[in-house]
């Protein structure tokens, strides 16, 4: 980020983040991940690679999982964002998947965990909507929910790397909530 901000290089946008509206003036270069972490102090979403290669920054935008490091905030005006901080909704209770991650000890350092959680929530919705994956058999009918076995879960979660290699327990935790 070299040049000084100049007029015409900022815009005002409104986002709902974890249910709360925010109106912000953003530099057009600002990506959602930096906006969440630096402007809104929501540091749950993590920066691993900053290039779409690790999934640590995964959040839900209008219910879909996306890499927030590659999303320019200005393009998201009017969107509904859910981060790991908002997965449990308003209540004190964690999301069932968060509970399952704790029960299964599905992490070591925990750096990838917020991304894994948001990704898994998005993944379950995709399978329920009938979205196929690379390992879904060609004979699986198009339309109804796709049943998830471990092979399906692993393939569908491949956009989230875990440097600690907690993969088997992440799959266990996800299986617990299906």
């Amino acid at each position: 980020m070299t040049s000084e901000p100049r007029p015409g290089h900022h815009s005002e946008i409104t986002l709902r983040v974890n249910g709360k509206p925010h109106t912000l003036r953003v530099d057009h270069r600002r990506v959602l991940l930096d906006l969440l972490r630096e402007d809104l102090d929501l540091t749950g979403s993590k920066k691993g690679c900053d290039h779409g290669q690790c999934g640590a920054c995964t959040v839900l935008v209008d219910g879909r999982r996306l890499n927030s490091c590659l999303l320019l905030a200005v393009t998201l005006d009017g969107s509904e964002i859910t981060t790991v901080e908002g997965l449990g909704g308003d209540g004190e209770e964690p999301h069932p998947l968060q509970r399952a991650f704790l029960d299964r000890d599905a992490f070591q350092c925990g750096y990838c965990t917020p991304g894994q959680l948001c990704s898994a929530v998005g993944m379950l919705a995709e399978a329920a909507a009938g979205h196929p994956s690379h390992v879904t058999g060609p004979e699986t009918p198009a339309g109804p929910p796709v049943p998830l076995d471990r092979t399906e879960i692993r393939e569908r979660m491949s956009g989230n790397l875990c440097r600690c290699g907690a993969y088997p327990r992440i799959v266990d935790a996800i299986e617990d909530v299906i």
């Binding site: 890499n67 590659l70 999303l71 990704s119 491949s158 956009g159």
Partner: peptide, 11 residues
């Protein structure tokens, strides 16, 4: 489906 990741394909 053989390309990238689910997050990337969603964008």
């Amino acid at each position: 489906l053989a390309g990238a990741s689910a997050q990337l394909r969603n964008a």
